[in-house]
């Protein structure tokens, strides 16, 4: 079943199952190729697949560069890699606490924001088995509340204590790495780090947009 080439896969799910509450936690992929061919044509949309995950909630998915793999984390503290064509689980990794937002994906690494495990880093290609372990972690005094951001070999995270932390994206050859830079904003980070043209932007709970850069 090709994906993205107008091919539909009617998984046989009825409207009841697709109504959310009966599915539980999972990831769905939709195709918007055609308004007509699937069994519920009046809704002009067909699910290509639905995959059950653990927990009760999951973060927004992340796609690999080649669009072959989908990454998603759950409130049960698991990160999944799924085949984007079939929805099959390729591997999963427990990260020790709730995944709060989408992982960042850069240079073959997943940077996972967690409730109490700080920044957890996984090999995006897996580990050759069904269950994988983190490569390293970056400690954070508070929950890493937003999706990390990666640029220039640095990964930035914001936390619920109002800290913005930078880690070497390559790690430090140890299981736990200290930040290479940090700053305290004095207010929980509510706007995920964004990096553009030499500046880092974050939003805070007390109503500020803050820009960082090389002075």
């Amino acid at each position: 079943m090709p994906v993205g080439n107008n091919a539909f896969f009617d998984a046989g799910f009825g409207l009841v199952q697709l109504n959310g509450s009966n599915i539980g936690n999972g990831v769905r992929r939709y195709s918007f190729d055609s308004p007509l061919p699937c069994s519920w044509a009046p809704y002009a949309m067909c699910p290509l697949w639905v995959t059950q995950l653990d927990g009760t909630d999951s973060v927004s998915p992340v796609l690999s560069d080649d669009q072959a793999t989908v990454y998603v984390g759950t409130d049960a503290g698991t990160v999944y890699a799924l085949d984007a064509v079939t929805g099959n689980i390729q591997w999963s990794a427990p990260v020790g606490s709730q995944v709060i937002d989408s992982p960042a994906l850069a240079n073959g690494r997943l940077y996972v924001p967690t409730e109490s495990s700080g920044l957890v880093v996984l090999d995006a290609t897996g580990c050759g088995s069904a269950t994988c372990s983190p490569l390293w972690a970056g400690p954070s005094s508070g929950a890493v509340t937003q999706q990390p951001a990666v640029a220039g070999g640095v990964v930035f995270v914001g936390n619920s204590d109002g800290d913005i932390l930078a880690f070497d994206a390559a790690g430090c050859a140890a299981a736990t790495c200290d930040p290479s830079w940090s700053d305290s904003t004095g207010s929980p980070i509510t706007g995920a780090p964004a990096i553009n043209n030499g500046q880092l932007y974050i939003g805070t709970a007390d109503g500020r947009l803050i820009a960082y850069g090389i002075p």
């Binding site: 796609l63 220039g152 030499g198 947009l209 850069g213 090389i214």
Partner: peptide, 30 residues
């Protein structure tokens, strides 16, 4: 998330790097 795939990775960034990150400062707050 930076782009449609939500990867949050700015591969074009060349000013904020592992070598320069220790020198970044708050530029402004709005």
């Amino acid at each position: 998330g930076g782009g449609p795939g939500r990867q949050a990775n700015n591969a074009a960034e060349d000013q904020i790097t592992a070598a320069s990150v220790a020198g970044i400062e708050e530029l402004w707050s709005a």
